[in-house]
């Protein structure tokens, strides 16, 4: 027998015991993005305007590559939960399911494309070195 009250067992968990996970993930990723955002803006601002070889060499460096990769990955995972909140608010039934599925597929596609590009640029510089 567990010596805790029903309230204590339920507190902070929500009805399904997983209902607060999305909110908590949004909070954690938001904190990470607060730190990443200013650095990411500076990194991108430096890259825009460079010729193609310059862009590839720039994102071949560790710092711009890691900041850009982190921002896009964490940002899109944050985006999945954010759109989920909006979809839950405005859509019902099948439309809600389709919306959630589309948002998740889209977000991972963006992550995959960005990671692919960054890896290619990293490997291109590796060949030069």
């Amino acid at each position: 027998m567990r010596y805790i009250t029903p309230l204590k067992a339920a507190e902070g968990l929500g009805a399904s015991h997983t209902g607060t996970q999305d909110h908590w993930f949004l909070t954690v990723s938001a904190a990470a993005l607060v730190l990443l955002t200013p650095v990411f803006m500076l990194v991108v601002a430096h890259a825009i305007g460079l010729p193609r070889a310059g862009v590839m060499a720039y994102f071949g460096q560790p710092f711009p590559a890691i900041v850009t990769g982190l921002f896009i990955i964490v940002g899109m995972l944050h985006f999945i939960r954010g759109t989920r909140v909006m979809i839950d608010d405005y859509l019902q039934g099948t439309a809600r399911k389709v919306g959630i599925i589309a948002s998740v597929i889209f977000s991972y596609a963006v992550i995959a494309a960005a990671v692919y590009a960054l890896v290619r640029m990293g490997l291109a510089t590796l060949v030069l070195v």
Partner: peptide, 12 residues
């Protein structure tokens, strides 16, 4: 983010 990722993928 779409414009930026398109631009990055286009570069490679």
């Amino acid at each position: 983010i779409l414009l930026l990722v398109w631009w990055l993928v286009a570069a490679v």
